[in-house]
Amino acid sequence: MGIVSSGFFGRGRRDDPALPPGQHLTDGFPVLSAGPTPRITPEEWEFTITTETGQVHRWSWTEFLALQQDDVSRDIHCVTSWSKLGTSWRGVSLDTLFESVESDCEFTMAHSYGGYTTNVPLDDLLDGKAWIAHEFDGEALEPAHGGPARLLVPHLYFWKSAKWVRGLEMLRQDEPGFWESNGYHMYGDPWREERYW
């Protein structure tokens, strides 16, 4: 038995109050690849919000960059158990994109280039909680991390922050996306460890 307990050296990394239960810190930025990386040029990129009436709100890359840009620093938490604190992003708030959108729906489905989908309640995208991010650490977002642009919803597990996002579809009822239909939680709150069904 050791003479000095590990507690003598202070709080372990797992005890960091910024870490949700079951998470550990990483200094890197792991890439979880579910398939070939989409390579989308700015010329072909567009972002859309489609309402329940079929109305499509559309932004080209140039129009998207002309919107108000936010610089945000947030902790991110991957369901595979790594967390990264204080990550720096630049992008457009969903509040800005939804200014011109009229919808009675409470749910959304994010759609990505490459076919990925994930469901997020509308309330979790508004009031300064989510962005369409196109820069990470002051650099253009790399394709491996979702560039040209990804959804950033940092208060939920990171699989909700859809890489290569191309649009949001408004839904009257919640529906499972790609991972949610095969075992992953419909909401994904890291502080409640909502990893699986």
Binding site: S33, P36, G114, G115
Partner: peptide, 9 residues
């Protein structure tokens, strides 16, 4: 896009 098969991961 899904037709990009150049990745080696």
């Amino acid at each position: 896009m899904t037709d990009n098969l150049d990745d080696l991961d």
